[in-house]
């Protein structure tokens, strides 16, 4: 469903050109569980942003569901992000003045969906992530694990096909981190394509497929031996 062809992404830093992505060719099928690992500056976040259509390649082509989305207009891109792509960030990025439920509702608000439809979806999402009690709480009243669960609920409220997670456990203690990973993997088992950027080798080992990046290139792309139930 995701197909990257000869993707280059260059940045101008001072008078130097940095190749953040250097001739990337990558295909990811629907429902895959992919981890992207590599040292800082290897281009893994750039790759994730590009797949999430927040960034654009300097050259090359990006197909999403067999549609070339490399050069869409701003409005269409926003629409695709809203409907097909969910983001989970290391820093959660919850809107501090909105309650947990309102944060989850945000993508539906932006899409202009009627409150009656929204309410049902939001309460379902809260329930499945064990957040019903916390629905009216502001982010500052939630623990880190709860915040990331709210963020996951928000990322999946529009039922996207792809979930992009950038160091989703980076700001969490080990136990919360495990909980969050369990949730993400459970979503993947139900069919969502999960692409996760991480530093953590142990997290990388949990995925069915792991991609290693160095200096903007894909260094290795392996299928892992899975020692727990994971569907690729």
């Amino acid at each position: 469903m995701i197909k990257l062809q000869k993707i280059h992404r260059n940045f101008q830093v001072g008078d130097q050109i940095v190749h953040a992505l250097d001739d990337i060719n990558l295909e990811i099928a629907q429902g895959e569980y992919v981890s992207v690992m590599g040292p800082s500056g290897s281009g893994k976040s750039t790759l994730l942003n590009l797949i999430g259509m927040l960034d654009h390649p300097s050259s090359g082509e990006y197909y999403l569901n067999d549609k070339n989305v490399t050069e869409l207009g701003e409005v269409e891109e926003a629409q695709i992000r809203n409907k097909n792509i969910g983001f989970v960030f290391q820093a959660f990025h919850l809107v501090p003045r909105l309650s947990a439920a309102e944060n989850i509702e945000l993508p539906l608000m932006l899409a202009g969906i009627e409150p009656s439809i929204r309410d049902a979806k939001v309460s379902l999402a809260l329930e499945s992530l064990n957040l019903t009690e916390r629905a009216r709480h502001k982010p500052e009243q939630l623990s880190g694990g709860q915040r990331q669960r709210v963020a996951i609920a928000r990322a999946t409220i529009t039922e996207p096909a792809v979930l992009l997670a950038d160091e989703p456990t980076g700001n969490l203690d080990q136990k919360s981190g495990h909980d969050v990973m369990d949730i993400l993997e459970a979503l993947n088992q139900r069919g969502i394509t999960l692409i996760m950027v991480t530093h953590d080798q142990s997290l990388g080992d949990r995925s069915a497929r792991s991609i290693k990046m160095i200096d903007g290139r894909i260094e290795s792309d392996n299928l892992n031996k899975i020692d727990h139930a994971t569907v690729s």
């Binding site: 927040l54 926003a78 629409q79 992000r81 409907k83 983001f87 820093a91 990025h93 932006l110 899409a111």
Partner: peptide, 16 residues
């Protein structure tokens, strides 16, 4: 600023 980035990521348009 971060909120603006978030809204874009969630599918908010320039105009919104």
């Amino acid at each position: 600023t971060a909120e603006i980035g978030l809204i874009r990521a969630l599918g908010g348009r320039h105009s919104q």
